[in-house]
Amino acid sequence: MLIDIFHDTVCPWCRIGKKHLFDALDQIQQPVNIRWHPFLLDNTVPASGYEFRSFMRTRKNIGETELQQMFDYAQKAGEAAGVKLDINKISLAVNTTLSHQLIAIAPENIKNDIVEAIYKAYFEDNLNLGDIEVIIAIGTAHQLNPTELRRQLTNDAAVDKILAESIFARLNNITSVPFFIINNQVKIDGSHSREVFVQALNRATLLETSSKIW
């Protein structure tokens, strides 16, 4: 089974959706190949980041009360899913390009672990994903060579590829994340529940089986 996941690493709903999907995969016990795709929510953020709460108030065009309600809602949804989202601890809105480069670089056997480590770095440890030292530290913790990693992360062509993939997603009518495509046929827009993902996975399996019969 092939699953394409479009996400951004500072999107709490992407982390929730990932958890629901992986819980569903554990339930149906099928071999799966996951491809991670960048969807940059705001690539104008500098590497140093912006003050988080003021950035989010401006981005959402809401006041502090509404902002806190939005954060509380996402945090409770994370708790229900079994993931930690310490949103009140976050101090910076960050540029996520480097984090997506690390995911692209990571070998397939650790790619999912790298994604989770990046989510943890932002939502639990309040780290700046736009800081190359933070990204190298995540990669090094997963046995990637720091010297080679730095060379790859500072490659302009690699940066351009992330930007191009993010633009490509929008040109193909993906307007929000998380967004999942199963076996190039079944699409799920949003985080949803484990049960919804189980139904989608079963439907994708049925469609694949039917296509082979015919």
Rank of each mutant, 00 (worst) to 15 (best):
123 F>Y: 10
69 Q>I: 05
83 V>Y: 04
181 I>A: 01
173 N>I: 00
95 N>C: 01
142 H>D: 06
211 S>T: 07
152 Q>D: 11
70 M>R: 06
85 L>P: 05
52 F>S: 10
162 I>M: 09
52 F>V: 05
187 K>Y: 05
182 I>Y: 08
107 P>F: 15
131 D>N: 14
68 Q>G: 02
163 L>A: 06
203 R>N: 14
200 A>F: 10
81 A>R: 06
125 D>W: 08
132 I>M: 05
154 T>V: 04
151 R>G: 02
33 N>S: 15
25 L>C: 12
193 S>E: 13
77 A>D: 07
178 P>T: 10
141 A>P: 02
81 A>I: 10
102 L>T: 03
68 Q>Y: 10
113 D>V: 14
209 T>K: 15
38 P>W: 01
25 L>H: 12
98 L>D: 01
81 A>V: 04
145 N>R: 10
35 R>E: 13
114 I>M: 06
70 M>H: 11
105 I>E: 13
21 L>A: 12
115 V>R: 11
156 D>A: 10
93 A>F: 02
140 T>I: 05
172 N>P: 00
51 E>F: 01
183 N>M: 07
167 I>L: 11
103 I>R: 02
40 L>D: 03
114 I>L: 12
178 P>G: 06
127 L>K: 13
136 I>D: 01
150 R>L: 11
144 L>K: 08
142 H>A: 05
177 V>A: 06
161 K>R: 15
190 G>E: 12
151 R>V: 07
189 D>Y: 13
48 S>N: 09
158 A>C: 04
213 I>H: 12
102 L>G: 03
151 R>L: 09
73 Y>P: 00
201 L>D: 03
187 K>C: 13
133 E>W: 02
124 E>W: 04
105 I>Y: 14
140 T>Y: 07
32 V>S: 14
113 D>N: 11
115 V>T: 07
210 S>D: 04
137 A>V: 06
166 S>A: 11
185 Q>R: 14
146 P>S: 12
40 L>T: 02
196 V>W: 01
150 R>K: 13
85 L>N: 04
42 D>K: 08
79 E>Y: 04
54 S>W: 00
124 E>V: 10
39 F>C: 07
